[in-house]
């Protein structure tokens, strides 16, 4: 426990390793949705000019209508997915930390479950971007010596919780000599 100000007994690093499944912080859904809306809006704005150009230069009325309808459909689907995806991702994401390590399960269609034993954790860090700071969230990064998954990221944790997870995963009870 380094710069964690909460030195409560319940916030002892090992207390967090209860081996229970946890969902991410629900605020992560809101944050992702906000980012998604902004992205969808930008996408609509950027594509608007070429679409307007194409529509005005199209010869027949049906072609104009088809083009416009296509743009409306794509933009709406994009916006709908930007709104829907964070909730689905949230529903399908669970993580579990116990004395042996951390397991993260996620994926809406392609499901992946990654387990990192605690003894393989080289170092951990918690980062917090400006958007995450607004929502009180943090991202936990677990670094291993592996090649394919040298960094395992867990986004959407409550910041304090991310710090506690970091501290728990960092401390090794057995000194790793060799």
């Amino acid at each position: 426990m380094t710069n964690d100000t909460n030195t409560d007994a319940s916030l002892d690093p090992s207390a967090i390793a209860d081996g229970k499944d946890y969902s991410l912080d629900p605020r992560y859904v809101t944050m992702q949705q906000q980012i998604g809306w902004i992205r969808a809006g930008l996408f609509a704005l950027i594509t608007l000019a070429p679409v307007v150009g194409a529509v005005s230069s199209a010869r027949t009325l049906t072609f104009k209508a088809v083009l416009l309808a296509l743009w409306v459909i794509v933009t709406c689907t994009n916006a709908w997915w930007a709104h829907r995806r964070p909730r689905l991702a949230y529903k399908h994401c669970r993580y579990r930390v116990d004395a042996h390590g951390i397991q993260i399960r996620r994926g809406i269609f392609w499901k992946r479950a990654i387990s990192v034993p605690r003894s393989r954790v080289q170092h951990t860090e918690v980062s917090q971007g400006p958007w995450e700071r607004r929502h009180g969230l943090g991202t936990l990064a677990v670094h291993t010596a592996g090649v394919q998954h040298s960094i395992v990221l867990l986004n959407g944790l409550e910041y304090e919780r991310a710090l506690r997870l970091r501290d728990h995963l960092l401390i090794h009870e057995t000194p790793d000599v060799v």
Partner: peptide, 14 residues
């Protein structure tokens, strides 16, 4: 020597 293990399930797999 194992650093991490991943379980992968695609919609087709499921």
């Amino acid at each position: 020597r194992v650093q991490s293990v991943e379980f992968v399930e695609s919609p087709f797999d499921r």
